Simulated scan of single mutants.
Amino acid sequence: MADLRAAARAYREAEKGIESAKAAAEARIRAAREKAEACRTDLHAAMVDAARAGMAQKEIIEVTGYSRERVRSILRAGGIEPD
């Protein structure tokens, strides 16, 4: 009977571990998404700054890997019209 009680207790603890791991994973994912969003915002600002400093859109496309239309869209949002 002691083995049964120990097994049941171990199982309940393992189940709690799953919930704890899920909560920790969700927190890590949320933090990673927030970091990605902040980096994306910084990238877009840097693209606008580079364009204002005279960098050609072609160069911005090469550096970022974004499509021409995406770069144009970001620059327009930053107040820069396409060349």
Score class of each variant (00 low, 15 high):
A2K: 12
A2M: 09
A2T: 14
A2I: 07
D3Y: 05
Y11C: 08
Y11P: 00
R12W: 11
R12M: 11
E13Q: 14
K16H: 14
S20N: 14
A21V: 09
A21H: 13
K22G: 03
K22R: 15
A23P: 03
A24L: 13
A25I: 12
A27F: 12
R28E: 12
R28Q: 11
R30E: 14
A32M: 11
R33T: 01
R33A: 03
A36I: 02
A36R: 09
A36G: 00
E37V: 06
A38F: 04
C39A: 14
T41I: 10
T41Y: 04
L43V: 02
H44W: 08
A45S: 11
R52V: 01
A53M: 05
A53G: 01
A53Q: 12
M55T: 09
A56W: 09
A56V: 07
Q57P: 00
Q57G: 11
K58L: 10
K58R: 14
I60A: 02
I61H: 04
V63Q: 14
T64F: 04
Y66H: 06
S67A: 12
R68N: 12
R70P: 00
V71S: 04
V71M: 05
V71A: 06
V71E: 05
R72C: 05
R72Q: 15
S73C: 03
I74P: 00
R76T: 08
G78W: 01
G79H: 05
I80N: 01
E81R: 08
